Simulated scan of single mutants.
Amino acid sequence: MARNAPTLLNAALQRTQFHDGRVSFLEDQAATVLANPTEMHGSMAAAARLLTRSPAYRAAFARAFAAAPAAPVQEAQLKAALAAYLRSLVRLNSPLDQYLRGDTTALGPAAQRGANVFLGKAKCATCHFLPLFNGTVPPGFERSENEVLGTLAAPNRLRLDADPGRAGATGIQWQQHAFKTPTLRNIALTAPYMHQGTYRTLAEVVEFYDQGGGAGRGLTVPNQTLPPDPLHLTPREKQDLIIFLHSLTDTTGLRRETPRSLPAFPTKLAHLNQRPVSGRY
């Protein structure tokens, strides 16, 4: 995989999908992943045909889409079903959300200090807009911003990552190395970080920003949108900032009991009945 897979949580609240923002709708996002030779190496049409061979899946899709019981699963139905599931993964009940709704015990002193660093000295909120903490621009939330950070190819290698980013999708030269500003919600659970997983810890990410990104480290990044000036965060400010980022964690509903079984396939496709139930986000 050329890029680090982003979280699916709150994907419905993003204006564009993928690190380069090349699609706008979750239906298209699902289809693109299925067709990508480095990911699923298939197609939505092929998946629909496979599901049609399962009477149980045919019946489930017929109920969901008010179709005839024996009707084949349609590609559009599969896209809609996958997108509907992704839209169910909205999580907005983190300790910070509880604090903002009036529970003053939900955020400790260090997290409160970290919030001030986030909104003030560290300037994080100039790109990670509240309340979604991603690049979806308020108040209309109709577009997502892309930023050039000068991300390194490796943590200890002073070389710019070669991924063209947004420019690879648009062909626009000044968008070289630009990537969609991702959500910071549940960031404590979604390591590694950056579009290609350069950093393994939040401490490394904070250090990268504190030094002014790639340009701040001495790389030539003429279109870097992140200010190259160092932030001069103190050790305590860095630690408080990380504690605040942990306060954006919300795993509500992700620990529910898994289904006891999945819709079955016929004997000729019996190997598919061995697929695991549940997963991790």
Rank of each mutant, 00 (worst) to 15 (best):
Ala5Trp: 09
Asn10Gly: 08
Leu13Ser: 13
Thr16Ile: 05
Asp20Gly: 04
Arg22Asn: 10
Thr32Ser: 09
Ala35Asn: 08
Glu39Arg: 13
Ala48Val: 10
Ser54Leu: 06
Tyr57Ser: 05
Arg58Met: 04
Phe61Ser: 06
Ala64Pro: 06
Phe65Ile: 01
Pro72Thr: 10
Val73Tyr: 09
Gln74Pro: 00
Ala80Arg: 15
Leu82Glu: 02
Arg87Asn: 14
Leu89Gln: 14
Arg91Glu: 08
Ala106Pro: 00
Ala110Pro: 13
Arg113Leu: 08
Asn116Leu: 14
Cys124Thr: 02
Cys124Gly: 00
Pro131Cys: 11
Asn134Gln: 09
Asn134Ser: 13
Gly135Trp: 11
Thr136Lys: 05
Pro138Trp: 12
Gly140Met: 11
Phe141Tyr: 15
Arg143Cys: 02
Glu145Phe: 04
Asn146Glu: 06
Val148Trp: 10
Val148Met: 09
Thr151Val: 15
Leu160Gly: 08
Asp163Ala: 11
Asp163Glu: 12
Pro164Glu: 04
Gly168Phe: 11
Ala169Arg: 04
Thr170Pro: 03
Lys180Glu: 13
Thr181Glu: 14
Asn186Leu: 05
Ala188Glu: 12
Pro192Asn: 04
Pro192Ser: 01
Pro192Trp: 03
His195Gly: 09
Gln196His: 15
Tyr199Lys: 03
Leu202Cys: 01
Glu204Val: 04
Val206Pro: 12
Phe208Gly: 12
Asp210Phe: 09
Gly214Val: 11
Gly216Gln: 09
Gly218Asn: 08
Pro222Ala: 02
Pro230Gln: 12
Leu231Phe: 09
His232Ser: 13
Pro235Leu: 09
Arg236Trp: 12
Arg236Phe: 06
Arg236Val: 15
Ser247Ala: 15
Leu254His: 01
Arg255Ile: 05
Thr258Ser: 15
Pro259Gly: 01
Arg260Ala: 15
Pro263Lys: 02
Leu272Asn: 00
Leu272Asp: 07
Leu272His: 03
Asn273Gln: 13
Arg275Cys: 02
Gly279Gln: 00
